[in-house]
């Protein structure tokens, strides 16, 4: 066993997902197979290879962090479901 159903539920919680018991069973089964396949990488010798240096093209370059105003506020909020006085409404966070 590579992974238990309890672990699957725990990972779901971290990922802010809720799985039904049925979904969790299927996910555990899929994970089992996928992780067995992924174990192929455990045997590869990566000695001396530094992480985070995979890039072989040029490194990212950052532009100046300059403020720009998005003029059309109506457009900016066109996808917001619950808006009140220019603020997005969410349930109470602090009691």
């Amino acid at each position: 066993m590579k992974i238990s159903k309890e672990e699957v539920h725990y990972i779901a919680k971290l990922a802010k997902l809720h799985l039904t018991e049925e979904e969790a069973d299927k996910m555990t089964e899929d994970f089992e197979k996928i992780l067995s396949n992924f174990d192929a990488i455990r045997g590869v010798d990566v000695e001396g290879i530094m992480g985070e240096t995979f890039k072989t093209t040029e490194a990212p370059h950052l532009r100046k962090d300059e403020e720009r105003v998005f003029e059309d506020k109506k457009k900016l909020f066109q996808n917001t479901l619950d808006l009140k006085e220019g603020y997005i409404k969410v349930p109470k966070i602090i009691e």
């Binding site: 990566v46 992480g51 995979f54």
Partner: peptide
């Protein structure tokens, strides 16, 4: 490990 493999 996957990142290092990517480099290889």
């Amino acid at each position: 490990k996957a990142q290092k493999l990517r480099k290889i």
